[in-house]
Protein backbone atom coordinates (compact mmCIF):
# COMPACT_ATOMS: atom_id res chain seq x y z
CA UNK A 1 0.00 0.00 0.00
CA UNK A 2 2.95 2.31 0.54
CA UNK A 3 3.33 4.67 -2.41
CA UNK A 4 6.58 3.99 -4.19
CA UNK A 5 9.55 6.04 -3.00
CA UNK A 6 7.81 7.58 -0.03
CA UNK A 7 9.85 8.39 3.06
CA UNK A 8 7.03 8.36 5.56
CA UNK A 9 3.72 6.71 4.84
CA UNK A 10 0.61 6.05 6.88
CA UNK A 11 -2.34 3.93 5.95
CA UNK A 12 -5.76 3.85 7.56
CA UNK A 13 -4.71 5.47 10.83
CA UNK A 14 -7.30 5.50 13.59
CA UNK A 15 -7.00 7.29 16.88
CA UNK A 16 -9.65 8.17 19.43
CA UNK A 17 -9.36 10.27 22.55
CA UNK A 18 -11.90 8.73 24.85
CA UNK A 19 -14.98 8.22 22.73
CA UNK A 20 -14.20 11.07 20.31
CA UNK A 21 -12.47 9.85 17.17
CA UNK A 22 -9.68 12.22 16.14
CA UNK A 23 -8.50 10.14 13.21
CA UNK A 24 -10.90 7.90 11.41
CA UNK A 25 -8.97 6.06 8.73
CA UNK A 26 -6.42 8.60 7.60
CA UNK A 27 -3.77 7.83 4.99
CA UNK A 28 -0.82 9.96 4.09
CA UNK A 29 2.61 9.88 2.52
CA UNK A 30 5.53 12.20 2.03
CA UNK A 31 8.55 11.77 -0.23
CA UNK A 32 12.08 12.77 0.66
CA UNK A 33 12.54 16.51 0.37
CA UNK A 34 8.86 17.11 -0.29
CA UNK A 35 6.87 19.85 1.41
CA UNK A 36 3.32 18.66 2.08
CA UNK A 37 0.67 20.88 3.58
CA UNK A 38 -2.03 19.33 5.76
CA UNK A 39 -5.11 21.53 5.53
CA UNK A 40 -8.42 21.34 7.22
CA UNK A 41 -10.76 23.17 9.58
CA UNK A 42 -9.88 23.24 13.26
CA UNK A 43 -10.79 20.08 15.11
CA UNK A 44 -10.54 18.02 11.93
CA UNK A 45 -7.64 15.92 13.29
CA UNK A 46 -4.73 17.69 11.56
CA UNK A 47 -2.63 17.89 14.69
CA UNK A 48 -3.41 14.34 15.73
CA UNK A 49 -2.30 13.17 12.30
CA UNK A 50 0.95 15.07 12.74
CA UNK A 51 1.48 13.62 16.22
CA UNK A 52 0.86 10.11 14.89
CA UNK A 53 3.18 10.60 11.91
CA UNK A 54 5.92 11.93 14.17
CA UNK A 55 5.61 9.00 16.56
CA UNK A 56 4.59 11.24 19.45
CA UNK A 57 1.21 9.56 19.71
CA UNK A 58 0.64 5.90 19.01
CA UNK A 59 -2.37 5.35 16.72
CA UNK A 60 -5.00 2.85 17.79
CA UNK A 61 -4.72 1.05 14.48
CA UNK A 62 -3.27 1.43 11.01
CA UNK A 63 0.19 1.06 9.55
CA UNK A 64 2.94 3.61 9.72
CA UNK A 65 6.25 3.17 7.94
CA UNK A 66 9.25 5.39 7.98
CA UNK A 67 12.17 4.64 5.66
CA UNK A 68 11.00 1.09 5.38
CA UNK A 69 10.68 0.57 9.13
CA UNK A 70 7.41 -0.13 10.88
CA UNK A 71 6.89 2.81 13.22
CA UNK A 72 3.80 1.47 14.95
CA UNK A 73 5.72 -1.52 16.28
CA UNK A 74 8.49 0.54 17.85
CA UNK A 75 8.99 1.01 21.57
CA UNK A 76 8.76 4.42 23.16
CA UNK A 77 12.55 4.57 23.43
CA UNK A 78 12.99 3.71 19.74
CA UNK A 79 10.46 6.32 18.69
CA UNK A 80 12.13 8.91 20.92
CA UNK A 81 15.47 8.12 19.39
CA UNK A 82 13.94 8.45 15.93
CA UNK A 83 12.52 11.84 16.84
CA UNK A 84 15.88 12.93 18.17
CA UNK A 85 17.78 11.83 15.12
CA UNK A 86 15.54 11.99 12.06
CA UNK A 87 12.74 14.43 12.87
CA UNK A 88 12.55 18.09 13.64
CA UNK A 89 9.66 20.09 15.11
CA UNK A 90 8.22 23.58 14.95
CA UNK A 91 5.10 24.43 16.94
CA UNK A 92 2.87 27.44 17.12
CA UNK A 93 4.16 28.78 20.45
CA UNK A 94 5.59 27.89 23.82
CA UNK A 95 8.24 25.65 22.42
CA UNK A 96 11.48 27.39 23.39
CA UNK A 97 12.86 26.56 26.82
CA UNK A 98 12.52 29.93 28.56
CA UNK A 99 15.60 29.62 30.75
CA UNK A 100 17.99 28.69 27.94
CA UNK A 101 19.40 31.29 25.56
CA UNK A 102 18.27 31.16 21.95
CA UNK A 103 21.60 29.64 20.96
CA UNK A 104 21.25 26.94 23.62
CA UNK A 105 17.72 26.29 22.47
CA UNK A 106 18.91 25.72 18.92
CA UNK A 107 21.76 23.53 20.16
CA UNK A 108 19.32 21.42 22.19
CA UNK A 109 18.58 18.70 19.59
CA UNK A 110 22.29 18.30 18.92
CA UNK A 111 23.00 17.97 22.64
CA UNK A 112 20.20 15.43 22.91
CA UNK A 113 22.00 13.49 20.20
CA UNK A 114 25.18 13.56 22.22
CA UNK A 115 27.06 16.25 20.32
CA UNK A 116 29.67 18.05 22.42
CA UNK A 117 28.64 21.44 23.78
CA UNK A 118 31.13 23.54 21.84
CA UNK A 119 30.50 21.77 18.55
CA UNK A 120 26.73 22.04 19.09
CA UNK A 121 27.03 25.77 19.79
CA UNK A 122 29.03 26.29 16.61
CA UNK A 123 26.50 24.50 14.44
CA UNK A 124 23.62 26.25 16.19
CA UNK A 125 25.15 29.64 15.50
CA UNK A 126 25.47 28.79 11.81
CA UNK A 127 21.77 28.04 11.71
CA UNK A 128 20.88 31.21 13.54
CA UNK A 129 22.85 33.08 10.90
CA UNK A 130 21.06 31.29 8.08
CA UNK A 131 17.75 32.29 9.61
CA UNK A 132 19.00 35.85 10.07
CA UNK A 133 18.57 35.85 13.84
CA UNK A 134 22.18 35.44 15.01
CA UNK A 135 21.76 38.61 17.08
CA UNK A 136 19.43 36.70 19.41
CA UNK A 137 22.07 34.09 20.28
CA UNK A 138 22.72 35.32 23.80
CA UNK A 139 19.16 36.39 24.53
CA UNK A 140 16.51 34.40 26.29
CA UNK A 141 13.29 33.59 24.40
CA UNK A 142 11.40 36.06 26.59
CA UNK A 143 13.55 38.85 25.24
CA UNK A 144 13.01 38.35 21.50
CA UNK A 145 10.00 39.11 19.28
CA UNK A 146 7.55 36.47 18.19
CA UNK A 147 8.93 36.37 14.66
CA UNK A 148 12.49 36.03 15.89
CA UNK A 149 11.45 33.33 18.35
CA UNK A 150 9.76 31.38 15.59
CA UNK A 151 12.86 31.62 13.41
CA UNK A 152 14.90 30.35 16.33
CA UNK A 153 12.44 27.47 16.54
CA UNK A 154 12.88 26.79 12.81
CA UNK A 155 16.66 26.84 13.26
CA UNK A 156 16.24 24.37 16.10
CA UNK A 157 14.05 22.10 13.97
CA UNK A 158 16.65 21.99 11.22
CA UNK A 159 19.88 22.05 13.19
CA UNK A 160 20.28 18.30 13.49
CA UNK A 161 19.78 17.80 9.72
CA UNK A 162 16.56 15.85 10.12
CA UNK A 163 14.90 13.90 7.33
CA UNK A 164 11.46 15.27 8.16
CA UNK A 165 10.41 18.49 9.84
CA UNK A 166 6.95 18.55 11.38
CA UNK A 167 5.53 22.05 11.59
CA UNK A 168 2.25 22.55 13.45
CA UNK A 169 0.81 25.99 12.63
CA UNK A 170 4.30 27.48 12.61
CA UNK A 171 2.98 30.94 11.70
CA UNK A 172 -0.19 30.80 13.76
CA UNK A 173 0.98 33.41 16.23
CA UNK A 174 2.67 35.72 13.71
CA UNK A 175 1.50 38.58 11.52
CA UNK A 176 1.50 37.89 7.77
CA UNK A 177 4.83 39.60 7.06
CA UNK A 178 6.66 37.65 9.76
CA UNK A 179 4.71 34.54 8.93
CA UNK A 180 5.70 34.73 5.24
CA UNK A 181 9.34 35.22 6.12
CA UNK A 182 9.33 32.27 8.49
CA UNK A 183 7.67 30.10 5.85
CA UNK A 184 10.11 31.24 3.20
CA UNK A 185 13.11 30.47 5.41
CA UNK A 186 11.66 27.16 6.54
CA UNK A 187 10.83 25.85 3.07
CA UNK A 188 14.01 27.23 1.51
CA UNK A 189 16.25 25.74 4.16
CA UNK A 190 14.39 22.45 4.06
CA UNK A 191 14.58 22.26 0.28
CA UNK A 192 18.26 23.05 0.16
CA UNK A 193 18.94 20.43 2.83
CA UNK A 194 16.66 17.85 1.18
CA UNK A 195 14.46 17.75 4.26
CA UNK A 196 10.82 16.80 3.89
CA UNK A 197 8.31 19.06 5.65
CA UNK A 198 4.90 18.11 6.96
CA UNK A 199 3.14 21.41 7.44
CA UNK A 200 -0.10 21.57 9.38
CA UNK A 201 -1.96 24.81 8.83
CA UNK A 202 -5.39 26.21 8.30
CA UNK A 203 -4.10 29.15 6.26
CA UNK A 204 -4.10 28.70 2.52
CA UNK A 205 -1.39 31.28 2.03
CA UNK A 206 0.90 29.29 4.29
CA UNK A 207 -0.09 26.06 2.58
CA UNK A 208 0.86 27.64 -0.72
CA UNK A 209 4.50 27.23 0.24
CA UNK A 210 4.08 23.49 -0.13
CA UNK A 211 4.64 21.25 -3.11
CA UNK A 212 1.42 19.42 -2.47
CA UNK A 213 -1.52 19.61 -0.10
CA UNK A 214 -3.93 17.24 1.51
CA UNK A 215 -7.13 18.04 3.30
CA UNK A 216 -8.23 16.45 6.56
CA UNK A 217 -11.92 16.48 7.25
CA UNK A 218 -13.60 14.64 10.15
CA UNK A 219 -10.50 12.57 10.75
CA UNK A 220 -10.26 11.42 7.15
CA UNK A 221 -7.68 12.46 4.61
CA UNK A 222 -8.11 13.24 1.00
CA UNK A 223 -4.69 12.48 -0.42
CA UNK A 224 -4.69 12.50 -4.22
CA UNK A 225 -1.99 9.83 -4.24
CA UNK A 226 -4.37 7.49 -2.50
CA UNK A 227 -7.47 8.61 -4.36
CA UNK A 228 -8.71 5.77 -6.48
Amino acid sequence: MTPAGSLLAAHDLRKAYGSTPALDGASFSVHPGEVVAVLGPSGSGKSTLLHCLAGIVVPDSGTLTYAGRDLSGMSDAERSSLRRGDFGFVFQFGQLVPELTCLENVALPLRLNGVKRKQAARTALEWLERLEVDDTAAKRPGEVSGGQGQRVAVARALVASPKVVFADEPTGALDSLNGERVMELLTESARSAGTAVVLVTHEARVAAYSDRDIVVRDGRVRDPEFAV
Partner: peptide, 20 residues
Protein backbone atom coordinates in the same frame (compact mmCIF):
# COMPACT_ATOMS: atom_id res chain seq x y z
CA UNK B 1 -15.76 22.81 -3.92
CA UNK B 2 -12.82 20.48 -3.35
CA UNK B 3 -11.84 20.62 -6.99
CA UNK B 4 -12.03 24.37 -6.90
CA UNK B 5 -9.95 24.48 -3.75
CA UNK B 6 -7.27 22.38 -5.39
CA UNK B 7 -7.26 24.64 -8.37
CA UNK B 8 -7.04 27.73 -6.22
CA UNK B 9 -4.22 26.27 -4.19
CA UNK B 10 -2.38 25.21 -7.32
CA UNK B 11 -2.49 28.79 -8.55
CA UNK B 12 -1.50 30.11 -5.12
CA UNK B 13 1.47 27.75 -5.12
CA UNK B 14 2.56 29.08 -8.52
CA UNK B 15 2.18 32.66 -7.33
CA UNK B 16 4.05 31.94 -4.13
CA UNK B 17 6.83 30.38 -6.12
CA UNK B 18 7.05 33.40 -8.38
CA UNK B 19 6.91 35.71 -5.44
CA UNK B 20 9.84 33.90 -3.88
Amino acid sequence: LDAQRSEHLRLMRVLTDRKR
